[in-house]
Structure formats: structure tokens, C-alpha cells
Design a protein around this nucleic acid. Structure first.
Lengths: 340, 340
DNA sequence: TTGTATGCGTTATCAT
DNA sequence: ATGATAACGCATACAA
């Protein structure tokens, strides 16, 4: 091991607590001793052991991000911003990837006990967590990009989200306004309860309903949030139902795969098939043709997630539920249906 | 705080050390007491405090990944696999994003002192780290996707890489073999020392040289590893030099942006301009047209990085330097130059 | 303004 | 096979 606080104290010719006061900027220390201690700290390259610190204070300053789906490019930019914001506040930050199929809340409960976290941000995953579980989380936390089922009391958690069904409604309505009647819907687990996919499906259905269009379950495909999966889903869809004139993909990654399927089939976007995605990742803009999308304000959501968390940590506020608006970006991959 | 080892001991009616032996599977414990302790542990949901543990053992089992460029989709799949592999071995894993412009080795040195890491994987960044710095790293580490400058003694570090210049040579030679003579090169910091971009530029230059083609600095553009940056760089290139018939992008993200620039300019891929990327991310395959690329074996590299690290941690084997071969994937975005 | 002593929760060394 | 007890490195109440 390296030098510790005792060494620094001895070398500086002061007591341990004086060193502690200096490195923590706490309590009264004369300028002379402060300077001396700091010089020794620097010379010996002393860095306090955070394990001992956290053990002593029974409260580390660690902020953890629990991500489900770290390969999601939309999350990538959010992660970057979240880390930046946390570091800005001088808190250590740790990213924990949650494997698909494992429970992130349980993982977090464990992490809290293990590392004495002081805050958690949950990103991605599903909504089916029980109130009881949340109550076991003894530190401030905020859900971002996800929320909970209706049964959970909003007074016990914070969230930063978009209104999934409203935004999906927006996308679908847009396609309908262009005259489309047979609109494919591609999402992950749209038929399961309490998933992002199912929320977006709700919006899709609502738009159909409001426009007196029948809901056709055959137009809904379940797929992962990836181009390859979107490709396969779109191909299944196109093979099964030749009447499809538009596709609403619940992510841009899916949309890109779907677009490829359409183009590969020798069809044109948007002349034969209109496509709209979701998220607003850079890739969608640079696809050819550029893909329309529902663009989420990822950076702002990241910013505000950290903001809400620190409000909670410093006891400044009660739980907040911030809902951002997403924006429909028209880039030309959707078009008025051609008359037949 | 929650229950601690003392509580468990008291409730179980045994001594503290017995509980410790049980939860660590160390030393002799009778089956009866073991069972009793375990039941209490379970009932009270006891989880050992890792700060105390690490403090005592002066060596946590934490493995840290230092990533520079977490938004890089190629890294994303590697990160996922690395985490999986580390967890498989029962070690806690933490991801630390290194901001562009900050020194990852310094950050790591600090992290080691703070958290008593037992191993580090470095991913991304540049090669210009001094031997002296590496020597300050008192725990096993491996560089992945990067390596060091020639001056650093290979006996003091491990690495898992591809041969950057060789693979770039491969891509460039391929374009040359198709008759291209004016080949644009897009990379991040190709003219700086000891960057991935500069290594790939070396391969590019070598291929030109071996084929008696002149090196034209005007065909080299500096850009970030992103579609937007690739788009701008390609546009600059196309505007400046109308003789360009092929573009070699040092990443698929750049290639996607470059492709967009070509298509937006009303040119065709590959009829007017051939494009080849680097990395082998999924998006490149689903671009339209699908983009040729030099595909790195990301998953295997991840796997082997963790393998090498744990060899170092346990076996005390010597340092290894594993170099993977990348594969030229032809998908149709490169074509024999049209005769003029 | 400064130093001493105590304890955070755990592991490990020693008796028993 | 089991239980006291001494560290691990630090922050802090309290004494000086």
C-alpha cells in the first residue's frame, strides 16, 4: 500500500486530524500548517482511501447509474451527459450494466448495501417494479426513460420521462394524416405489460381508434432494439401483409433495420413505404434516406435526471416527475400515400 | 444502516468470526452452524459492506474499465462482453468513462489508490503514455484496442489489439486493386503522434507507396468518430477534390456520414465513389447500400482482454500481447473504378 | 488552532 | 469447531 493519512501527519509534523481537516477543507487550520500539509500531500502523492472514508462516514458519495441496454445508442449520449453532470458536482460515478432478464432494483438494493451509495439513476428496462421493492431502496433515486405502473404511489419516486403513448400517438397520427391505413408497428415486447413497447403500442392503437381505423394485430411485430432485429421483423411483416404502406418503429435502430428490409425488397422509401422511427439518434439522420423520427431530448433528460437526483440528495425537494416533450422530425422518409 | 455481521452473529447465537467464515466459505464450520447462519443471513437480507471488506483486505476484487469514447458503438458491444466476463468470474465491475482530453492513466492511478482495484482494462484513447506512468500502476492491467508507443517496454504491460496499420493497409490495397488512385482518408487526428488515426494513416500511406501512388495530403481529413463529423469531412473533401473516387473511413460511424455526403451530393455508391469503413458495427451492414468494412473481432477481443487480465491477476503469467486479425467484409460499397 | 482517542464493519490471528 | 480481539485508514467528538 501507499502512504496513508498517518504517514502524512508524521511527515508534516502534525496530528492526523489536522491532515484530515486540510484534505476535507473542514474546520479551522492555520494557513501555515495547511500549506505544509498540502505540500507533503502533493510530494508523496497521497490519495485518501475511499473505502476507509466510506466506512467511517457510512455514506459514500457514489452515484450509480443502472442501465439496461448499454448498447442502445440513444442511451450512450445520455450516459455521457449524466457522467459529466455527476462529476461536475464532485461525486464519484459508477455505471452498472444490468443484464437483460435480471432485476435492476434488486441489483441496486444490493449495491446500496455494499457500497453505501448516495444516489441512483435507473435507465431503461421495464415498469413492473413493486412499490414494496422501491421502499427497500433507502437512498434517493430517479427513473429516467422509464417509469412505473399505475399502482406505484408517485410520492415515493422521481422520474424523468417522455409521455411514451402520447409520442407514439403523434407518430402514428402523422402517418395517418398522410393517408396511411395499414401501418406496421415494430417494438420490443409490445404485448407484454408495462414495457416501453407496450406504452408506445397504446399510443399507436389510440391513434388508429381516433381515426376509425381497425387495429390489426397482424401488423404488430415484436423485435429487439437493433437493426438486425428490425430488419427481420420488417421482412416478416412485408411478407405477410402486402397492404402495408407505412411502418412505425419504436426505435431508430429498429427503423434502420426496417428501412433496409424495405429497400432490399426493392421498394422505395417513401414512395412505396413510409417509415418513422423513435429516439432521434444521429444515425437515423445520416441514413439514406434520412429517417423521420420522434426525437427525445436526451441531453436535457440526462441533465434533469441528475438535477432531480441532487435535489433529492440535498433534501431540497420532494419527488418530482418531469415529462419532456419529444419532437416529430420530418426528414422525408414519410410521404402522402400514393393513390392506387 | 442495515444489519451487520455483528447482528447476524448475535441473532444466530454464534461469534462474529464464525459468520465471517460462513459467508466467505473459509475455514472450518460445522454443517449445523453454517446452516443456521445462512438462514439468518437470508432472513435478514444481510449483505456484507464492501467498504469494510476492502479496507480490511487492502485489496478489493473490483475490476475497472477505463473507456475513452463510450458513445462509440463498436466499444458498446465490447463493454457488454467485458462486463459479462468479469461478472462470470465473480468480480465486481465498474465502468469509468474518461473524458476526452484527460489522461486515463492518471485517472486509473488515482482509482487504484482510492478503491484498491485488482485489475484494469483500458479501452480507447491514444498511445502516448510513458513507461514511467505505467510503472505507477501497481495492479495488473491490459490495454485493449490501443497499445503504446515503441518506446515502452512490452514486458511491462499487456495488450489486446489488431494491427492497425496492417488492417488499414488491407483496406487501402483493396481500393487500389479496384483501380482507385485518388483515395480520401478520414480519421480522427491522423496527423497527431500515436493515435489510432495515425496508425491507420501509416497503413494507408504504405499501400499507396507500394503501388507507386503519390501521397496527397489534401486527401486526408481529420474528423471525430461520428456520422456528422464524417459527413462534414467528406463534404469538404468532395468539394475540394473532384478527382476522388474512393473514401477510406477509419470507422464505420465516419463511413456512414461520408456515405451520406456522397449520396447527398447526388453521387452514387459505389458507381461514382467507393467507400470502406472500419470496425464492423451492425449499422454499417444495414446502411443502404451496405458498407464494406474492416471488421474487428470485438467480442473475441473483449473475451481475451478479460482472460489476459485474469491470467495476470491469478497465475502471475507474464505479459501477453495478443493481436487479432480483422476481416475485410465486401458488401458492395466498393467497386472497380469506372473508366473515363 | 491542534492532537488524542474511538469506532465504522470486516477479516484474520490467535487462543480456547 | 468456535470466539475474542486486533488491525485496516479514516473522520470526528472531545480534550488541550
Amino acid at each position: 500500500m501507499d502512504v496513508n493519512i498517518k504517514d502524512i501527519a508524521r511527515i508534516s509534523g502534525v496530528g492526523i486530524s489536522t491532515v484530515s481537516r486540510v484534505i476535507n477543507n473542514k474546520g479551522l487550520v492555520s494557513d501555515a500548517t495547511r500549506e505544509k500539509v498540502l505540500s507533503v500531500v502533493k510530494e508523496y502523492n497521497y490519495i485518501p482511501n475511499s473505502n476507509a472514508r466510506n466506512l467511517k462516514t457510512t455514506q459514500s458519495k457514489n452515484i450509480a447509474l443502472m442501465v439496461k441496454g448499454i448498447t442502445n445508442p440513444f442511451f450512450a449520449i445520455m450516459i455521457k451527459e449524466i457522467e459529466r453532470q455527476v462529476n461536475l458536482r464532485g461525486y464519484p460515478f459508477l455505471i452498472h450494466q444490468v443484464e437483460d432478464g435480471t432485476d435492476e432494483i434488486n441489483a441496486a438494493i444490493q449495491l446500496v448495501k455494499e457500497k453505501n451509495l448516495s444516489g441512483i439513476i435507473f435507465m431503461g428496462g421495464t415498469y413492473n417494479h413493486s412499490e414494496e421493492k422501491f421502499k427497500q431502496l433507502t437512498v434517493p433515486f430517479v427513473l429516467t426513460t422509464i417509469t412505473t405502473s399505475q399502482e406505484v404511489d408517485p410520492a415515493i419516486f422521481s422520474s424523468v420521462t417522455i409521455n411514451e403513448s402520447k409520442e407514439a400517438y403523434k407518430a402514428t397520427s402523422y402517418l395517418i394524416s398522410l393517408g396511411h391505413k395499414n401501418i406496421g408497428f415494430l417494438a420490443k415486447s409490445p404485448l407484454l405489460d408495462e414495457t416501453t413497447g407496450s406504452r408506445r403500442l397504446m399510443g399507436y392503437k389510440l391513434a388508429l381508434e381516433e381515426n376509425n381505423l381497425p387495429y390489426n394485430a397482424g401488423l404488430v411485430e415484436d423485435c429487439e432494439y437493433s437493426p438486425s432485429s428490425g430488419f427481420n421483423a420488417a421482412r416478416r411483416l412485408l411478407n405477410r401483409d402486402r397492404a402495408v404502406t407505412a411502418i412505425f418503429a419504436a426505435s431508430d435502430t429498429i427503423a434502420i433495420g426496417a428501412a433496409k428490409a424495405v429497400l432490399t425488397a426493392g421498394l422505395s422509401i417513401p414512395d412505396d413505404i413510409s417509415i418513422i422511427g423513435f429516439d432521434g439518434i444521429e444515425m437515423a439522420e445520416y441514413y439514406h434516406p434520412a429517417l423521420d423520427t420522434i426525437s427525445q431530448p436526451g441531453t436535457e433528460m440526462a441533465l434533469s435526471s441528475v438535477g432531480v437526483l441532487f435535489d433529492l440528495i440535498s433534501n431540497r425537494t420532494n419527488h418530482q416527475h418531469i415529462v419532456y416533450d419529444a419532437v416529430l422530425l420530418k426528414r422525408g422518409s414519410c410521404k402522402m400515400i400514393k393513390s392506387r
